[in-house]
Write a protein that binds this DNA or RNA. Structure first.
Lengths: 150, 150
DNA sequence: TTTTCATGTAACTATTTATGTTACGAATAA
DNA sequence: TTATTCGTAACATAAATAGTTACATGAAAA
């Protein structure tokens, strides 16, 4: 199974959009993400329904972020994407008759839920603005490095 | 994508094996897990290499647990299975040139690693004996419930 | 009004991963 | 020698993600 990269893609798109003062077309975004415009629209559809972005058609149309980055958390984006499963580990039978399997499932479910809760809590703490700041810092660092040659 | 259920299957098998004083054949185990004997051998191969179980061929052959359940943790089993990915979330590009994507990947990787570490730590704390005890308790509970009718 | 641009979406294809199945060889006990 | 059981390769199936094609819809510009 491929690993789900929609959260990564959505964040990447949002940060690029936020850097610009005009709408980005799906094709623009697709070029940034090395993917296809339809895939972009599919991913962005959830964000639009959640009110994180808006889309416009026709000339000058495209996608814009509708809220300040400091008000959007990774959790918001994750929820907007439809809360895809975070964990890879599951169990074969959902409602097993075998008591051994019930015990195994309980133990795993409990542990998985604990990890999932932690992930979601952290997602809630991280805002897009934090990532944008990290981006600016890293860009500045690279620029400095580039100048520091010789 | 289906979710990986090998850890669940391995635990289920180990607990059944531990309840018996003779080897369980792959077919026996497959019947318990509602799966195929070849799938069982494939899963158990890792456990054998890790020294958690032994297998014998021919008449009277099959699988036995080689260590006391209090000395086997979920982490041991997870490692024996080859440390399959625990998390579903990934990113599209592994070594992106885009600085925005680098920042997104860093933030996600960090958060994912944190959750993964917690999972592994918990796995290390849970022993098969704990699950066997839970099984015995639940079995007793069910028996009592069954008698308590009317 | 017509043209051009851009999203919205359904339908299909491709790729990857996990699991199931078949087939046969090798080892072991009866 | 035969029945049993693991070991393993090769192939089949199933499910999920992502990529592609095609076309309808809506909006701005010419």
């Amino acid at each position: 199974m491929k690993r789900n990269s929609r959260l990564s893609a959505a964040l990447h798109a949002l940060l690029h959009m936020a850097e610009r003062d005009t709408p980005m077309t799906s094709d623009d975004i697709a070029a940034c993400l090395n993917t296809n415009a339809v895939v972009v629209r599919r991913t962005m559809a959830g964000l639009r329904e959640a009110g994180l972005v808006e889309s416009g058609r026709g000339h000058g149309g495209g996608w814009v972020v509708t809220r300040p980055l400091c008000e959007i958390s990774l959790l918001d984006v994750h929820l907007a994407l439809g809360e895809p499963d975070l964990l890879q580990i599951g169990h074969a039978t959902e409602n097993p008759g075998c008591v051994v399997e019930q015990v195994v499932n309980s133990a795993l479910d409990e542990t998985m839920k604990e990890a999932e809760d932690i992930l979601l809590r952290r997602f809630g703490e991280i805002k897009l603005e934090d990532m944008a700041a990290a981006f600016r810092a890293r860009s500045a660092g690279h620029a400095a490095t580039a100048h520091r040659t010789g």
